[in-house]
């Protein structure tokens, strides 16, 4: 049995996301609860996926609308209202947010005796993005948020061991 499966990361994930916002992204964030499985945010147009390997294999995904991703980028970069947000910064900022979530989850996992190596975030930018969880996923959960009134979700999933 994978060690990641035995650590309850649900509440920790919620706390981490809120800490990241409180520390570096000055936008109001409201937790809208969670659910089992991997579910992108409503109207998802941007998705940042961070894979991990080690004791278990899986991924962390951040999904949101482009409008929300732009709000997060502007807040992360402390941009003024008259500044233009470069498009490349929007994808990079969402990836960096996923990276911070993943890195902090890793710290929790490592404290629980779990080895976890993170990959660089991959960004998918499109319209009406849908995800289909693979059949190998043995555990997954999603936390939903409203950021400045816009939807943002963070999902965590673990795949069955390959051996």
């Amino acid at each position: 049995m994978s060690g990641v499966l035995e650590i309850d990361l649900t509440d920790k994930l919620d706390a981490m996301v809120k800490e990241i916002f409180q520390t570096m992204i000055p936008l109001p964030i409201e937790s809208m609860g969670g659910k089992d499985g991997v579910h992108p945010a409503e109207g998802t147009e941007m998705l940042a996926i961070l894979g991990f390997t080690g004791t278990a294999t899986g991924s962390i995904a951040v999904s949101t609308t482009r409008e929300c991703a732009k709000m997060v980028t502007a807040a992360l970069l402390m941009m003024g209202p008259d500044e233009t947000i470069p498009e490349e910064d929007v994808a990079d900022a969402l990836g960096e947010f996923a990276n911070m979530v993943g890195g902090n989850l890793k710290n929790t996992a490592v404290e629980g005796g779990v080895k976890m190596d993170l990959a660089a975030p991959a960004i998918i930018d499109g319209q009406q993005i849908h995800t289909s969880p693979g059949s190998k996923i043995v555990r997954g959960f999603t936390r939903d948020y409203q950021v400045g009134g816009k939807p943002l979700s963070v999902s965590f999933s673990v795949e069955a061991n390959r051996d």
Partner: peptide, 8 residues
């Protein structure tokens, strides 16, 4: 490796 993080 993140240009955004360098700006931050």
């Amino acid at each position: 490796d993140s240009g955004t993080m360098r700006k931050i």
